[in-house]
């Protein structure tokens, strides 16, 4: 059976969906991803859906589920590269994917994840260390 590869990149997991998702594939992705987050103790998950042109309510729910599950396992989820048509469809279906972070492309998504994880680990400490030269 087809499988969507889950790549480990430092503290993050990277998933790029290059094929059109069908229900069973999405379900297995969900299971694999949660397993992988648990195994690698990842802090963030980045899902690139720029090649996905068709979504339905089921797919929307899967994305929401993945985000929820990862949150419980202490990992942030960022969905990147959503196409305009897909975004409009999800909104029309009444699935605004609350709880899922989004970014325009992988680069911006990575930046967002890094920021989120940094803030989480550093707590209240300010990260702008280059602003105060001693």
């Amino acid at each position: 059976m087809e499988k969507i590869p889950i790549l480990k990149m430092g503290p993050f997991l990277l998933v790029t969906i290059q094929v059109d998702l069908y229900d069973r594939l999405a379900l297995s992705l969900e299971a694999d991803l949660v397993q992988m987050v648990n195994k690698t103790n990842a802090k963030g998950v980045l899902i690139d859906i720029s090649a996905v042109s068709i979504v339905d309510s089921f797919m929307g729910r899967i994305f929401g589920n993945i985000a929820g599950m990862c949150k419980i396992l202490d990992a942030e989820t960022v969905v990147v590269g959503m196409q305009p048509a897909v975004a409009i469809t999800l909104i029309e279906l009444g699935l605004p994917l609350t709880g899922v972070h989004t970014a325009l492309d992988v680069e911006k998504g990575m930046k967002l994840l890094t920021e989120k994880v940094n803030i989480d680990t550093d707590g209240d400490e300010p990260e702008d260390d280059d602003n105060n030269p001693v």
Binding site: A87, P96, T102, D105
Partner: peptide
């Protein structure tokens, strides 16, 4: 609200 949500989904 729809427009705003769609924009958010795109990552903006």
């Amino acid at each position: 609200i729809k427009t705003v949500s769609a924009t958010r989904l795109m990552g903006a």
